[in-house]
Structures are given as structure tokens and as C-alpha cells.
Design a protein around this nucleic acid. Sequence first.
DNA 1: ACTATTTCCTGGATGC
DNA 2: TGCATCCAGGAAATAG
Length: 305
Amino acid sequence: MPELPEVETIAQGLAKRVTGDVVESVWLGQKKEPLKSPAEEIAATLERSRIAAVRRMGKHIVFDLEKNGVAQTRLSGKNRKGHKSSGKAATPAASERSWAAGSAPLKAQWIVHLGMTGRLQICAPDWEIEKHTHAIVKLASGRELRFVDPRRFGRLSVATGADFDAGGVEPLEIDTDQFIERFRGRKTPIKSALLNQALLRGVGNIYADESLFRAGIRPRRRAATIAREKLNKLLVAIKEVLREAIALGGSSISDYVGADGEEGFFQLQHRVYGREGEPCLVCQTSIKRVVIAGRSSHYCPKCQK
DNA sequence: ACTATTTCCTGGATGC
DNA sequence: TGCATCCAGGAAATAG
């Protein structure tokens, strides 16, 4: 279940391997759940685009795309209402020019959310197509980038007009004042607030539990009842947990593996997540599990108040 | 404007 | 062995 550290690891791995490559063609499966944008729009946006960068925003992987202005103009005019062709010379010679040449490239983004079980694999075209493969992106380098997701909680979309807005604020970039402002006054349990991507983006169930343990706060505590000092401690804990996890390549439980298929190791550092009934590593008290907002929440009843 | 609950999905684990 | 049931959980949709 990829959260911020896993997605960061995957995005970095992908960036290393596909930056600069060009999309030749795109195949999209028939299942509609994984597609947040219309299939034709995703395909049209990706095809003939150069992958300028791959980065993470919250739990999303964002591919920054650049396309020759001429080709993009033609596609936009055909596929999007109210978007007129700009009248630039659309000669075949121009559309085949190298990416560096000619007018400024038109930008777009391909956004991938892995959900629970989504994976992006880079492979040779003759690799067996796995069950639950929903997208195959053919690259000019001869490789393929495939999206595989058995549970179909993952999502693919494109942003063409404006930049993709992931909502919320990056937990590794937010400062104490911003954090307190966003979380204080909320009546909801702090655990729910941490999972709310519109507040803070990228923290999921594992890292919420681990951060709350380090900060000594019970997951059911209402955000509004937590003192500023304690909220500050929580933010420090969140940043610490996320940074440590990124350094270890994320947590490999269930389906997660990095871009090259390697596993992460942060699961070995989990102090409460998945440890129901086991002794607290600090005080030996049995770790409890309760359900909050439909999510398993693990905590030490003695260390967390 | 918030908050809480339900729904979507499949595979692996568990129970009888 | 086989079959049914439960559970994992992010985010969108729905209800209050």
C-alpha cells in the first residue's frame, strides 16, 4: 500500500529510468475504474510526448510531459471543445523536428495513483503481459511502461489545461504554524485528520499510526483538543518517520516493490502498525488495534494519551 | 462547511 | 479439499 515514502521511492526510480524517453503509443484496457480521464484523452496526451521529469505529489506520481507545439495544437483542436487551433504552421516537417528545436514545447502531465495494489513496471515488449494490466505505454527506447493493478483502486489521469492540483500541503514542506493552523479546531479524531489528503497529502494508514506513536498521541484524540506544543511534536514525528522511511526505500508489505522490483525495509521499523497484541517496544504494554474511520489504527495505550 | 459512513475491487488468509 | 466469509484500505460518493 504505497504512501508517501513508497511513492517517492517509485517516482525516483522511474525518473532515473524513463526521463527523456518519448512515448510512441499507448494501449488502455477495457476496465473503466482505473481511468479518471477519458481513455482517448489520456492516449492523445501521452502519445508523442517526451517525459521531461517524474516526481511525486502526495501519493501521486506525476509525469511532466512536453510535446512539440504543432502536434499538441492539432490534438487539442480535435479533442477538446472550445480550444481553437492557434494557427501555427502545422507542417509534417515541423512535427518531426527534434524536441529541442522549434517553438516552446506544450506541457501536460500524466498522473498515476497506485491505490492499494497498483504497480508501474518497465519491461521489454516481449515480457508476459500480467493479469490486471490496464495500460501499456510504448517508449521510443524500445521498452514498455505498464500499469498493473489487480484491485483497481489505482487511477490514471492527465492534466492538460492547468497544472495538476493534488490538494493539501506536502508534509515535508509544511512549517509548524501552517500545520497547527490546518489541524487545530478540527473535531475529527487526529488519525482521521492525518489521513485527510486535503489537509496534508501523502500520509496514509501506516505512517499516521507510526507518527502518532512517536508523538505519544492516541489516534482517537480529537484534533481540536491537542495542545499546540503537542501538535508541533506530531509534525516533527511525521517528518522524522517519513524521512526515515524514504531512506529505507519505504515499507514492503503486501504488494509494494520499488521501480526496479526491489523491496523497501521500513516495515522492520514499524513500532505499532501491524503489531496488535505484541509488546510495546518502549513499555511492553500490549499494542491495541481499534477501527477509526474504517481504518485499522494501532497504538500503545500506555505511551499514547 | 464539516464530519461520518458506505462503496468500490481482488487475492490471500481463515474457518468449518 | 472445497467453498464461503472476511479483511486489507485510498478516495470518491453519499448522508447527516
